[in-house]
Nucleic acid binder design. Structure first.
Lengths: 349, 349
DNA sequence: TTGTAAGCGTTATCAG
DNA sequence: CTGATAACGCTTACAA
C-alpha cells in the first residue's frame, strides 16, 4: 500500500464529525416545521396550494435537516417506481452499450431510472429475470434478449407492466415491438456477391446459441445461396475474438480464400487479422462482412463492410414507445428500424 | 410496414384471453389459502416454521394466482432494497462496460440489482444524481465518476448508504475506495522512452474536462519530462475518434513524427490511422500509447501499446467491497489495483 | 405452528 | 390553506 493512500482510522469522517443525515422522514420534517406531513408532502410535490410563507418555512427545515424523500415509500404509495427494467444478455457488447446509452438519454429526460436485468445468455437466468422484473414493480420493461420468447414478454406485460420488446414480434395489448428490418438488405448483399464473377467459398460463421439476429441471418444466407444454386459453408466459431482468431490462423493454413459473414465486428476483425497474419490479402483473397457494425468497423484496418443499425436510436425509441404505451397512447405497436449496408475495405467493389 | 409484421388489433392478447395477473397481494393469497398473511410471508421467505402441509397449500395458491411479492413493499418494510446504485459518466465506453459487467456478475450472485445513475459528464447532472442515489434508498452505491469529489461521496455515505468510490481517495467511515496505481508504471514508460536515443516530439493529448485519470497522467507526463529536462507538448483533442482523426490528418500535413500519449484506444487508433493514411509509418515515424487499454488495443493493426487495468475485476471487487462494507466487516478500506503496461506494435522496442 | 397488529415513509381523500 | 387518517404491500415482534 503506497504511503499516501494509507488511511488512519482516526482520521475518518464519522458520526461525530461530518453530520450524519440518518433518514429523516417526512414526519420529522413536519414536526420541526410545525405543520402536518400532508403539508410537507404538498410542498415537495408542488401540489395543492400552500402559503408561500409556510412553504418557505418547510423548505428551510428540509434543507436544514437534509431531508430526502424516500423513493421506495413513494413508489409504494403511488404505485409508480419511476424505474424501467432493462433485460439484456450482457452489458459487454458495444452495440448493447450503444443501445443502453440511447435509453439512458431519454429515460433521464423523462425522469426514469434504468435497472439492469442481465441474463448472461442463459435460459434459466432469463426466466429468473422475468420473475425479478415482475417483482420489481418497475413502471415498464424493455427486453432485448434472445432467450426470451413471446410468452415471456406477454407474461411480464400481463402483470400490468408495459413492455417493449426489441427484435421480436409479440402480439399483446400491453407490448410494443421494435423490429430490425435487414432481410432484403442482407439478401441483396449476398445476391450481388454471388452475381459478380465470384469464385470464393461462401462461408457463414455460425455461433452456437447466439440469438435471433444471427439465426435469421443464417437462414437468409442459406436461402439466398440455394436460390442461386451455389454451394455454401457453415462454420462453427466461438463468440470471442481470441478464439476465433486462433481458429482462423489454423483455417488459413489449408484454405486461402473465402467470403465470410461474421456476427459482429470483433469476430470479423479476427478473420481479417488472421488472414493478414497468414499472408493473405483482404479483400483480394479474403472478404469479410460484419452483421452488426459498430464504430469499430470503421476504426480497424482494413475497415469492415457491415450491416448497420443505429442502436442508440433504438434505445431512445424504446423508451419513447414505453412511455407512450404506459400512457395508453402508443399509436403504432410495431416500429420497424431499417438496417443499412455499408461497403468498406473488407470486401471488393 | 412489411406485411408479416402487421398487427391486427383483434388478434392482440388482452384481458379476456391470456389471463391477467393484476397485482395479487399477499393478503389475497392468504385468504385464498385460508391462512394469515404472516404465514404466507413465512413461506415465501422460508423463515419460521410452517407445516409442510400448509406450506404446500400456500405454494399451490401462489402458483395458481400468479402471486409475485412486491419488492417495493418489501424494501419499505425491511429497509433493504437489494439494489445497488451505480454512478458513471456514460455507459458508452468499453472500459466502463467491462466494469459494469464485473459488477453485474457479482451483484447477481449476491442477489443485488444494479440501477444506473449516469451523469453524462456534466457537473449539474452529477449533483442531481447524488440526490437521486440518496432518495433511491439503495443498499449501496458505487461511484466511478470524475465529476464527483470527496464531499459528494461522503454525503451519500452519510445517509447511511455504504459507498465504494473508484479512482478517488475518500476518507469516511462508510466509504471504501479502489485506487488505480499507475504512477510508477507510466513514469517508467515515459522515462524509458526519453532515455532511449529518442528524437521525436513528445506529445500528450489533453482532453478537456475528461477526469482524474487523464489529468493525473498528464501531470506525471509533464513531471517526468521536466525531470529529464526534455521538451514536451500538450495538444488539445476531442474525446472522439472521428474528430481526432480529422485533427490528425491535418496535423500530419506539417508534422511527420511524434510520440503520442492518448486517453484511450479509440483516440490512439485515430492517430495511428491518420498517420498511416498520411503515409507515415507506425511505429517508425509515429508512436502511440493508450492510457486505458481494452481488448481493442489488441484488435486494431498495428496493435496499440497500452496501460491496462482489468476493469471487469475492478467491477467485481467493488461489489465485493460494498457487500463487506454493508455488513460492517470490510477489512481494508482502500484497495489498490495495479496497472500494467503492455508494449505492442504502436511503439518501438 | 399460526395469527394479530404495529410499523416502514409516502400519497391522497376527506373534512375543517 | 391545512390537518387527520386511511391506504400502499410487506415484515416481524409478540401472543395465542
Amino acid at each position: 500500500m503506497s504511503e499516501q493512500n494509507k488511511i488512519d482510522e482516526n482520521e475518518l469522517v464519522n458520526d461525530n464529525e461530518g453530520h450524519r443525515n440518518i433518514r429523516v422522514t417526512i414526519y420529522e420534517v413536519a414536526r420541526a416545521a410545525n405543520v402536518s406531513l400532508a403539508t410537507v408532502s404538498r410542498v415537495i410535490n408542488c401540489r395543492g396550494n400552500v402559503t408561500s410563507k409556510t412553504k418557505e418555512r418547510v423548505e428551510r427545515v428540509i434543507a436544514e435537516m437534509g431531508y430526502r424523500p424516500s423513493v421506495v415509500a413513494k413508489a409504494l404509495a403511488t404505485n409508480r417506481s419511476t424505474n424501467i427494467g432493462v433485460v439484456i444478455p450482457s452489458a459487454n457488447y458495444v452495440y448493447i452499450s450503444n443501445m443502453l446509452n440511447g435509453m439512458i438519454e431519454v429515460a433521464k429526460e423523462r425522469g426514469y431510472n434504468l435497472t439492469l436485468f442481465v441474463t448472461s445468455n442463459s435460459h434459466d437466468d432469463a426466466m429468473a429475470m422475468v420473475e425479478k422484473v415482475i417483482s420489481s414493480h418497475v413502471d415498464g420493461a424493455i427486453i432485448f434478449d434472445d432467450q426470451l420468447g413471446e410468452e415471456d414478454a406477454s407474461k411480464i406485460a400481463s402483470y400490468d407492466v408495459p413492455t417493449i420488446v426489441i427484435n421480436n414480434l409479440v402480439k399483446h395489448y400491453n407490448v410494443g415491438c421494435i423490429l430490425f428490418i435487414y432481410d432484403a438488405v442482407l439478401r441483396n448483399v449476398i445476391n450481388e456477391k454471388i452475381k459478380s464473377q465470384f469464385q470464393k467459398p461462401l462461408v457463414f460463421l455460425h455461433v452456437h446459441n447466439c440469438g435471433r439476429i444471427l439465426a435469421n441471418a443464417e437462414n437468409i444466407f442459406i436461402d439466398t445461396c440455394r436460390a442461386n444454386n451455389v454451394e455454401y459453408h457453415i462454420m462453427n466459431v466461438d463468440d470471442s475474438y481470441t478464439k476465433t482468431y486462433s481458429a482462423f490462423m489454423n483455417y488459413f493454413k489449408e484454405h486461402k480464400s473465402g467470403y465470410f459473414v461474421a456476427y459482429r465486428d470483433s469476430i470479423a476483425a479476427s478473420i481479417i487479422n488472421a488472414a493478414t497474419d497468414s499472408g493473405l490479402n483482404v479483400p483480394e483473397d479474403v472478404e469479410v462482412i460484419s452483421l452488426i457494425g459498430t464504430k469499430y468497423a470503421n476504426i480497424v484496418r482494413p475497415t469492415i463492410s457491415s450491416m448497420n443499425i443505429d442502436m442508440q436510436e433504438v434505445g431512445k425509441k424504446a423508451v419513447y414507445m414505453l412511455n407512450e404505451l404506459g400512457e395508453g397512447n402508443l399509436k403504432n405497436r410495431v416500429c420497424e428500424i431499417d438496417c443499412s449496408y455499408l461497403k468498406r475495405q473488407s470486401t471488393k467493389e
